[in-house]
Every structure is written in structure tokens, then in C-alpha cells.
């Protein structure tokens, strides 16, 4: 498991704005992103927490598939968003939020964030970039479709996307 440093890479954020800004940045944190295959099998689960607790994020991602299933199988509920890839917030809990995204190949992206006031637009933007990264990763001729994504480049790119998440609105 890769342990993502919580300190921001951008020195201007820590130096100039000080500790308060750091706190604020940390609140914007994505704790986990995941790619789940069309058979609901995990293809890529990456947590961005310090503690050795990736398993609980696996659990959260796995359980969030319930909601994805529910939305996909219940066309009544999903209604006009049926054709949209962005599934929105899957479920709110008191402490974290889970967002989902469904590609047209039925691959799901799940995002777990502890930021409770995240903006939909940020998440959409995140997923769009993530989707692009994913498409690039699986276009690799050496990637076996349906297998776990092991590409280091992909991991790096994802971690960059995660780092820059919400920067536009972070202030």
C-alpha cells in the first residue's frame, strides 16, 4: 500500500499561507480512489491516508457498490441522470462522502473524501480527469482488460489528480 504524504507538494501553500491553510487543505482530502470493474471486482484501490487502514477504505468502496447497483438497477430513481456518467454522491455519512462515476463500459470510479463540503463541480472535474487517466492506462497494450491496474504511471497520475483536487476552489 502506498502511503501518500499528507504534506502538500506545493510549497507556496504551506509557506505563504501557514498552518491554517494546511489544515484547510487537509480538510479537502481525498482518502481513497478506486476503480471497480464491471463485475464489481476491484481493479485499483488507492488510499491516501497515513494510517495502515486501507482495508476499511476497501470496505467503504465495496459497500458503495450497493448504491451504484441500486441506482443502475432502479431507473426510476436515477431518472434523468440515467445517461450521465457521474453518479453523484453515493451516500453521505457523518464523516465522509462517497462519490461515484460510472463509465459506459460499466467500470465504476469511487471517490471517498473526508471533505464534507466538497463541491459537485470539483468532483465532476476530478472524475473527468481520472477517467482520462484510466482510459490511458487501459489502452496500454500490455494491460489485460479486467485485470488489476498495476501501471506506475497511472498511480502517479492519479496521485497528481488527487493532489490537485479542489485546488481551484480551495482559495
Amino acid at each position: 500500500m502506498q502511503s501518500q504524504s499528507r504534506l502538500p507538494a506545493n510549497p507556496s501553500r504551506t509557506g505563504a499561507k501557514g498552518f491554517g491553510s494546511l489544515i484547510k487543505w487537509r480538510e479537502k482530502m481525498i482518502v481513497c480512489v478506486a476503480v471497480v470493474g464491471h463485475q464489481n471486482n476491484p481493479l485499483y484501490v488507492q488510499s491516501f491516508t497515513d494510517a495502515d487502514d486501507a482495508l476499511k477504505l476497501h470496505h467503504i468502496v465495496h459497500c458503495s457498490l450497493d448504491v451504484v447497483d441500486e441506482r443502475v438497477n432502479n431507473p426510476k430513481k436515477s431518472g434523468p441522470t440515467l445517461n450521465e456518467t457521474f453518479l453523484g454522491m453515493l451516500y453521505p455519512t457523518e464523516n465522509y462522502k462517497v462519490y461515484g462515476y460510472l463509465t459506459n463500459t460499466k467500470v465504476k470510479f469511487v471517490l471517498v473524501t473526508t471533505d464534507l463540503d466538497v463541491r459537485d463541480a470539483d468532483v465532476r472535474n476530478f472524475f473527468r480527469r481520472f477517467h482520462a487517466a484510466y482510459v490511458d492506462a487501459v489502452s496500454n497494450p500490455f494491460h489485460v482488460p479486467g485485470k488489476k491496474i498495476t501501471s506506475k504511471t497511472f498511480a502517479e497520475r492519479v496521485s497528481n489528480i488527487v493532489k490537485s483536487f479542489g485546488l481551484s476552489s480551495a482559495g
Binding site: 494510517a51 487502514d53 482495508l55 476499511k56 477504505l57 476497501h58 470496505h59 467503504i60 459497500c63 455519512t93 457523518e94 464523516n95 465522509y96 473526508t114
Partner: peptide
Amino acid sequence: RTPANSASLSMLP
């Protein structure tokens, strides 16, 4: 200390 319990408790302040 299962993943489920951890998920619901460890992120709860």
C-alpha cells in the same frame, strides 16, 4: 476490529 467497524468508527471524531 473489522474493516466495517473501523470505517464507521475511525473516521468519526
